[in-house]
């Protein structure tokens, strides 16, 4: 088909479209969903019993703050990149906060090691933990793919991966609030797994979800 004919066909019977909300507005919407998911989980299983003590000790607050910052920035970066004309460097935005968060987890690990010796790094399998990871990660990633579905023809991979990172960060906050894990090594291992699983699954499956939602 000639390109000029294609244009005639495209403009023939053109339907009006509603302009998309700005990346910031989309980020706020997604954060709203995130708050609902985390609040729902807290309502369902309750806060972990020793949360106050741990926050007083300053253990989890720093980590949650770093995770929260990563989540907000990663979500904003994902939505920025879902528009064609935005600078690809938006992808770098959440990285400093992400590094801070990982450093915090690693530092906790070292502290446990200093306090408890090799015992502090002992790992056990915690399957409920995996259920929590999926329970938080899945709805958050799906919500991200849905809100950013217009990105499927633009930058599906980076948008899905950043969306996964945002979902993983909020998952981390949810885990810290509700799920009992003591040793930092366990936290690092399971939360690290949560980040890897959520980000990886989102990067792999996100574009497909977007395609399905777009069609």
């Amino acid at each position: 088909m000639l390109t000029e004919d294609l244009i005639s066909r495209m403009s023939h019977g053109l339907a009006p479209v509603r302009r998309l909300p700005s990346p910031t507005a989309l980020t706020l919407r997604w954060l709203g969903i995130a708050v609902i998911v985390v609040a729902g989980a807290v309502a369902l299983v309750g806060l972990r019993h020793d949360l106050q003590a741990r926050i007083d000790a300053g253990l989890d607050l720093r980590q949650m703050a770093a995770a929260g910052l990563t989540g907000v920035l990663a979500a904003l970066a994902a939505f920025q990149l879902s528009f064609p004309d935005r600078d690809p460097r938006w992808a770098l935005l959440p990285l400093p906060a992400f590094a801070l968060w990982l450093a915090n987890l690693g530092w906790g690990c070292l502290q446990d090691f200093a306090r408890l010796g090799p015992e502090g790094l002992h790992l056990t399998t915690s399957f409920p933990c995996l259920a929590f990871i999926l329970g938080f990660g899945l709805p958050l990633s799906l919500a991200m793919a849905w809100l950013g579905r217009h990105a499927v023809l633009i930058r599906p991979g980076p948008v899905a991966a950043l969306g996964g990172l945002a979902a993983a960060s909020i998952t981390n906050i949810g885990l810290t609030l509700t799920h009992h894990l003591d040793a930092a090594a366990m936290v690092l291992a399971w939360h690290g797994l949560a980040i890897a699983v959520t980000t990886g699954a989102a990067a792999l499956l996100g574009p497909r979800v977007m395609r399905a939602a777009e069609a």
Binding site: T3, L6, I7, M10, V17, L20, D85, H150, L153, E214
Partner: peptide, 29 residues
Amino acid sequence: AVQDALLTLHRVRATYDPARPFTPWISAI
């Protein structure tokens, strides 16, 4: 590629914000 770009532009036309310049938007696509 021009036709691909036109079809993409058509499907993502809701992502254009008239407060921003148009040329970078269409060029990126």
